[in-house]
Design a protein around this nucleic acid. Structure first.
Length: 860
RNA sequence: GCGGGCGUGGUGGAAUGGUAGACACGCCAGACUUAAAAUCUGUUGGCCAAUAGGCCGUGGGGGUUCAAGUCCCCCCGCCCGCACCA
């Protein structure tokens, strides 16, 4: 699920050699990692005496290389985990691998290896890279989704869902490469052509497995309201995706249609515009379109439509095309009015009935279509109720019905209700709630996925495999030398006996969508060894996930599927009822970006260069090898194609993990994209060095006498840093830590308390440095196990505050007042200020606004 | 195309509708040094001005408000998702 592109080498840096007197991360970091490991500091144990806290970052796809985006994601999760542990929670912070998927098959084809070999090798490499980051992970719950122990339980879940009526088979379209004779993922369709063969892609119908997520459409929508700690934008996107709409489904009587098509059933969300209808249209996949394919021109048109890929984006971006079938439908309220029926390439067979009526005046897509084919455009909703017409822009706002007989003068909602009432009375249709959300197709015609545990028997049909035969494991001896599903062409794997009648039968060769794997891993983490999908007592103790962290690119699909799966697991008895919504809080972090470097080749095309090919000179950047000038492009998401990637492992080897951790959290707010700059990383390194020098200095000094200002600053810092940690404003916490470091450096008083506090405040971000400072300052035990500092509220109160004075909304002066000065005193002080007197010039202010503790505004 | 988001100095960014630019990078100046690096100190949105101070300024245009980066409308640009990439 969570694949990030692999990274490349960084620019070289002046920071490379470090004198021995400096903080040496290369020695220190492994030392503390070993101590944490030996003391099993991060091992989660059920403990009823403390509140539990389950922190989860979206688990990675094992591409083989840690990406800087991973560093950001997992550092944020680690901060939360360490902070909550310091606050006294029993923290659970597991990690695993989203290990099925296409990249492993592609690697298998390219390097002639087995996908499993490639995947497990990558996992080993990435685990080492994770270790270098010093994350507070409990590896004792680790699994990969390609482990038979995991996917076998997934098969058990599938069987339970099948029994519960949540899984079924139906026909659906796939992208078909007619040259390679294989199914293509949308990603493998480039400009309508297969990525390897280059052949124009066709749509092909296959019988496939589906999960009935649509059964839960209403509930998944309604329950969004209860997700208080989810970002609003994610909830909004999910709500729009589910797309509940109230509309009218009704039957047009047809003229000239083939037998069996005496009526054409359409769905509309705008029944009020029925009198503005000027055509009807059906999808190229609609049964009517198929029934008419004896007409060669029509067949050519539908074939052309099917050459568009299956993605909604491809369909909707394609030029709107229609084919007049010659068939007419009769207007339900005016039998003298007949509308032409088109086949159109922008109608989705999956939404509504796959057929619509077009009202061009009030739908932009219909209008474009009508203008193209010279169809009538009659406005039936007018902004002011007066006569109205549209040119090239459809009118979609509220208004009053016109040109609509018995609807004239009504508003849109009344008109909708009236049309539905009359159609229902006539018995030709009914009001209907429709969801945009479709059932979840999980069949994949691929090898590297979880086999769907069913058997095809000639006598018994589709038969579920027996649970005692699980896991149905993937065969090892497979070849990837030709396209298509290796399970299909395996000589023996398909052969089995029917669980029902015992006759010879064939296994299903489809595997499951990898989104299935990632829809319940969070529940499996609570008991990865269980011989059922979950262990109820463990799930009951650890669930729900208290804080889930991952990229916003998963805002819809993964999170919606996981919400559905949790419900399915409750229904099938694998999770307690409280887990219907499995993620109590969600945070989406931004991407890591880098500026891009390009030159032009002899044909004028862009050639991209990685940061380590580039050197700076006075005039800008040039290529290290040739000295050719490079064009510096904007900072965009790091990607292989633009080569603007930084290898976090080289960064860690050079500066240490703490520096990378500090840097990815500083500067940018976590939800926003961050730009990786070498200078920024060096600045982080310099600051950590400064903290270390200060710690050494403070540890060695014998001072007495409290510095009250420093004590106050310490409590202020504790409060501010805590607020930042709690509210995912880590960049602000870091700004406060910078300030506090400077305050300690300047203080002439006793500084050990402040310095120890600084170490503990930094521990969630820079755990290794914190341990080293903590130890040197005489802290007891491990910093990772020390309680988080608490601010004394009494120390946070400021006696006097500075109030800005605005004149007509512009700041002109400021006054100092005691924190609870009465309004009258503030007004008097403000009006007696020189700047105010000067501007007033003897006049009385029109208005005087005092916002206590914030501002004074004098309106002249 | 549809859905969602973002846009603030040279740069990353800060700012419950209430002092725009916290903190950091960079630049400049100074200290230390034979010198450099490192370190420390200071300045740093633009324009005018000796100073005081003034004017302008949060992608563009309009609006609401005593007060708008923040709320509303229109436009521009960029990013994410669109159901078989993970």
């Amino acid at each position: 699920m969570f694949r990030l592109k692999s990274a490349d080498k960084p620019r070289q840096s002046a920071m490379r050699s470090q004198p021995v007197t400096r903080y040496n991360a290369q020695v220190t970091e492994p030392k503390w990692q070993e101590k944490w490991r030996d003391a099993q500091v991060f091992k989660a144990r059920r403990d009823e005496s403390r509140p539990k806290y389950y922190v989860l970052e979206m688990f990675p796809y094992p591409s083989g290389k840690l990406h800087i985006g991973h560093v950001r994601n997992y550092t944020m999760g680690d901060l939360v985990a360490r902070y909550k542990a310091a606050k006294g929670f029993n923290v659970f912070h597991p990690m695993g691998w989203d290990a099925f998927g296409m990249p492993a098959e592609n690697a298998a084809m390219k390097h002639n290896t087995h996908p499993g070999t490639w995947t497990y090798k990558n996992i080993e490499e990435m685990k080492g890279q994770f270790a270098a980051l010093g994350l507070s992970l409990d590896w004792s719950h680790e699994f990969a989704t390609c482990d038979p122990a995991y996917y076998g339980q997934q098969q058990a879940l599938f069987l339970d869902m099948l029994e519960a009526g949540l899984a079924y088979r139906k026909n659906a379209s796939v992208n078909w490469d007619p040259v390679d004779m294989t199914v293509l993922a949308n990603e493998q369709v480039i400009d309508g052509k297969g990525w390897r063969s280059g052949a124009p892609v066709e749509r092909k119908e296959l019988t496939q497995w589906f999960f009935r997520i649509s059964d839960y459409a209403d509930e998944l929508l309604a329950a969004l309201d209860g997700l208080e700690n989810w970002p609003d934008k994610v909830k909004l996107m999910q709500a729009n995706w589910i797309g509940k709409s109230r509309g009218l489904q009704f039957r047009f009587a047809t003229r000239g249609a083939p037998e069996g098509f005496e009526a054409l059933e359409v769905y509309t969300t705008r029944p009020d515009t029925l009198f503005g209808a000027s055509f009807a249209a059906v999808s190229a996949d609609h049964p009517l379109a198929k029934a008419l394919e004896s007409d060669p021109a029509l067949a050519a048109f539908t074939a052309e439509c099917r050459r568009t890929g299956t993605s909604a984006e491809a369909l909707e971006k394609a030029e709107k095309l229609g084919f007049d079938t010659g068939i007419k439908v009769v207007h339900p309220f005016d039998s003298t009015k007949e509308l032409p029926v088109y086949i159109a390439n922008f109608i989705l067979m999956d939404y509504g009935t796959g057929a619509i009526f077009g009202c061009p005046a009030h739908d932009q897509r219909d209008l474009d279509f009508a203008r193209k084919y010279g169809l009538e455009v009659t406005a039936v909703v007018s902004p002011d109720g007066k006569d109205f017409s549209v040119e090239n822009e459809a009118f979609t706002d509220a208004g009053t019905l016109i040109n609509s007989e018995f609807l004239n003068g009504m508003d849109i909602e009344s008109a909708k209700a009236e049309v539905i009432r009359r159609i229902e009375a006539a018995g030709t249709g009914e009001g209907k709630t429709v969801f945009r959300l479709r059932d979840w197709g999980i069949s994949r015609q691929r090898y590297w996925g979880c086999p769907i545990p069913v058997v095809h028997c000639e006598a018994c049909g589709v038969v579920p495999e027996k649970k005692e035969n699980l896991p149905i494991t993937l065969p090892e001896d497979v070849s990837f030398d030709s396209p298509g599903n290796p399970l299909d062409r395996h000589p023996t794997w398909r052969n089995c006996t029917c669980p029902n009648c015992g006759a010879k039968a064939l296994r299903e060769t489809d595997t499951m969508d990898t989104f299935v794997d990632s829809s319940w891993y969070y529940a499996r983490f609570t008991a990865p060894e269980a011989d059922t999908p979950t262990h109820m007592a463990d799930a009951d103790y650890w669930m729900n996930v208290d804080q889930y962290i991952g990229g916003v690119e998963h805002a819809i699909l993964h999170l919606l599927y996981a919400r559905f799966f949790a419900r399915a697991m409750v229904k099938t008895g694998h999770l307690p009822e409280k887990c219907r919504e499995p993620f109590n809080a969600l945070f989406n972090q931004g991407m890591v970006c880098h500026e891009t470097y390009s030159t032009k080749d002899d044909k004028g095309r862009d050639v991209w260069h990685s940061p380590d090919e580039i050197v700076a000179d006075g005039a800008g950047y040039k290529l290290r090898e040739t000295g050719e000038r490079v064009t510096v492009g904007p900072s965009v998401k790091m990607s292989k194609s633009k080569l603007n990637v930084i290898d976090p492992i080289e960064q860690i080897e050079q500066f240490g993990a703490d520096t990378s951790r500090w840097f990815v959290l500083s500067d940018s707010p976590p939800e926003r994209d961050v730009e990786w700059t070498t200078s920024g990383a060096e600045a982080a390194w310099k600051h950590l060095q400064r903290v270390w020098r200060l710690a050494v200095e403070v540890a060695g000094e014998e001072r007495s006498g409290e510095d009250v200002a420093l004590t106050k600053a310490m409590h202020r810092t504790i409060a501010d840093v805590t607020e930042g940690y709690e509210g995912f404003a880590f960049n602000k916490s870091i700004a406060k830590l910078y300030e506090f470091t400077a305050a300690i450096a300047k203080s002439k008083g006793e500084r050990k308390t402040a310095m120890r506090t600084l170490a503990l405040l930094m521990q969630p971000i820079t755990p290794h440095l914190a341990e080293e400072c903590w130890e040197r300052l005489g802290g007891a035990g491990l910093a990772a196990q020390a309680p988080f500092p608490e601010a004394d509220p009494a120390m946070l109160v400021e006696e006097t505050i500075t109030l800005p004075i605005q004149i007509n909304g512009k700041r002109r002066a400021e006054i100092s007042v005691s924190k609870d000065a009465p309004r009258e005193e503030v007004e008097k002080l403000a009006l007696s200020h020189d700047a105010v007197i000067r501007v007033l010039d003897g006049r009385t202010p029109k208005k005087l606004i005092v916002v206590p503790g914030r501002i004074v505004n004098v309106v002249v």
